[in-house]
Nucleic acid binder design. Structure first.
Length: 284
DNA sequence: AATTCACTCAACCGCGCTTTG
DNA sequence: ACAAAGCGCGGTTGAGTGAAT
């Protein structure tokens, strides 16, 4: 939705010194002022920066605009499957520590990740009628969502196997391979489903789901190892977003929209919903 | 064509922590 | 040691958009 957004109305207040303070959407002129000033003077000291740049904005507002929107290395557009997977993993580790999660996702801001969680992940939780922070939901994510993301990543990384693709809504990894949690909710086998395309197993490395073929360390997707020494490598060699998705000629947003299609409005298929309900029954 | 609804995301707010004087 | 200012973080809001009716 970032495309062609018409600016909201701007309100003008007065600060305690009686100076004008603008609020609301930033104009192109304001953006340029901020960029120019930071380019020549650097960032930090946001309140004085706002004044010396001639911006009628709070320092906070300038900082936010710069960090979340104007900074040159910011990636725009939808999150790739491997980024989604990383968010799920890191959130399971750290909870709502958005800035900490963002540190491991170059080009992505805490705000963007937070928005993704609220709009996409919490939506899935609502569909299951559970709290997104509940154990049940996290289990369901681990059981169904993450393997599917891995599957998607695998598909994207190996164009030759595209014939064996499965549609988003069709149950791919579920019925035969996924361990059905008939009795008690069992974490053990959860981490070793088999990817249907390759027969490749998913391994768990220091609590992280990762395809067995990927190295546990060495090359780190996020560019930054975890503090505890672990790392999670989902850098897919040769993955070219535009090429793999057949997005040539599309705008960035169109391309990402195509990418997102497999996800659909409801992630869970009926089989998975059924299994989830069984989990709930066992639990009560 | 008009209206409603759900969704996205930029921007704001409040709070707590850190730095500075 | 203390207060004030600055900063960063997580939570929330609301306008714009497109799809559905």
């Amino acid at each position: 939705m970032s495309k062609g957004r018409i600016p909201k109305s701007v309100s003008i207040n007065l600060d305690q010194d009686g100076n004008e303070l603008r609020r609301g959407p930033w104009t192109l002129e304001e953006d340029n002022l901020l960029i120019q000033h930071i380019t020549s003077h650097g960032e930090g000291q946001w309140n004085s920066l706002a004044k010396s740049a001639g911006l009628k904005r709070t320092g906070k507002s300038c900082r936010l605009r710069w960090l979340n929107y104007l900074k040159p290395d910011i990636k725009r557009g939808n999150l790739a499957p491997h980024e989604q997977l990383l968010i799920l993993e890191l959130h399971s580790r750290w909870g709502n520590r958005w800035s900490k999660i963002a540190q491991h996702m170059p080009g992505r801001t805490d705000n963007e990740i937070k928005n993704y969680w609220r709009t996409r992940v919490q939506k899935q939780a609502r569909q299951l009628k559970v709290d997104s922070n509940s154990k049940k939901f996290l289990e369901a994510v681990r059981l169904y969502w993450m393997p599917r993301l891995l599957e998607k990543i695998e598909q994207d990384s190996s164009p030759s196997s595209s014939a064996a693709t499965s549609s988003p809504s069709s149950s791919s990894i579920t019925t035969s391979e996924t361990p059905k949690p008939a009795a008690a909710p069992p974490p053990p086998q959860i981490n070793r489903p088999v990817l249907p395309n390759s027969g490749e197993e998913i391994q768990e490395i220091s609590g992280f789901l990762t395809p067995a073929g990927l190295e546990p360390c060495g090359k780190i997707f996020c560019g930054k190892p975890f503090e505890d020494g672990g790392c999670y490598h989902v850098d897919i060699p040769g993955y070219d977003h535009v090429q793999e998705l057949g997005c040539e000629g599309m705008s960035m947003s169109e391309c990402h929209a195509a990418d997102d299609d497999w996800f659909g409005s409801c992630f869970w298929n009926s089989d998975e919903l059924w299994q989830f309900r069984k989990l709930e029954e066992v639990d009560v």
